[in-house]
Simulated scan of single mutants.
Amino acid sequence: MRRRVVCLRHGQTRWNVEQRFQGHSDIPLDVAGVAQAARAASLLAALGPTAIVSSDLQRAYDTGSALARLTGLGVQVDKDLRERGGGAWEGLTRAEIAAGWPTEYAAWEAPGGEAVADVAERVSEAIRRWVAQLPDDGLLVVASHGAALRLGIARLLGLPEELWSALGGLANCSWSVLEEGRRGWRLLEHNAGTLPEPVISDDRPEAGNGG
């Protein structure tokens, strides 16, 4: 048996709908997001998770808590699972960012924000730490954020940074499943749980659209 990780993006927030960069801003789930979390929990509970860990931001924690209520598990909190920090862009819409920082927008590098390599490293290392505590056949659910999870997954898979954009974004309350093998991690599912729909995330414009 091999250990698996379900990377679950949080449910919808008002800022997602308004296409505002959330980053480290602690924005709660909206009504639709609460319903999305409940639906995701009803599906993921059937997998029999061993442990649940969440970002310390409430939109992710509340998403993980919906699953915890069905499984009887607690939700552990890890600040390293936070979304990519957006610096001067947090709270701003895509249009405002593009108008105010056209060069930085093209590169998707926020003034005062986090570098993608730093986010990939902290998220992937956090996942590794929690996986190390699982039994050999354990299943870890990680409730986190769109850009953070995409970058962390890319790093776990060993993709070179120039190929990270090949991995698409995650819709609200969709998830990816990774399995630990003899030669490292492999991706079993990506952006699962919904029919194809627009992704509103803090990630790069081509990956999706508020984390």
Rank of each mutant, 00 (worst) to 15 (best):
A35Y: 08
G193P: 03
T93W: 07
V31I: 07
G208V: 05
I127Y: 08
A38E: 15
R128K: 12
L134H: 07
H24Q: 12
R155P: 01
T50C: 07
L151E: 08
T71C: 09
S54R: 01
A192C: 09
T50A: 10
W15K: 06
E179I: 02
R129F: 10
V6A: 09
R2I: 03
G91M: 04
T194Q: 10
E121D: 08
T13C: 04
R150G: 12
S124I: 04
S55F: 04
G11D: 09
I153C: 13
P198H: 11
E161A: 15
A88G: 01
R128S: 15
Y105L: 06
I200R: 15
L149M: 09
A120F: 07
E180Y: 00
W130Q: 02
A45Q: 13
E197W: 09
L178G: 04
A32P: 00
R122K: 05
G210F: 06
G72F: 14
E206F: 07
D80L: 09
V77N: 04
L92V: 00
G100L: 04
N191E: 09
L170N: 08
L29Q: 12
A147T: 13
A126V: 05
A95K: 10
T13G: 05
D30N: 15
W175D: 09
L43H: 11
V31R: 15
V5A: 10
P198V: 04
R14W: 10
A106Q: 15
Q22D: 04
P102R: 03
I27W: 13
L73T: 12
V177A: 08
Q36L: 00
T71N: 03
D80R: 14
A40V: 02
V131C: 08
L178W: 06
P196V: 03
E206T: 12
E114Y: 05
L157V: 06
R186Y: 10
A68N: 06
T13E: 03
I27S: 14
R4D: 02
L67K: 03
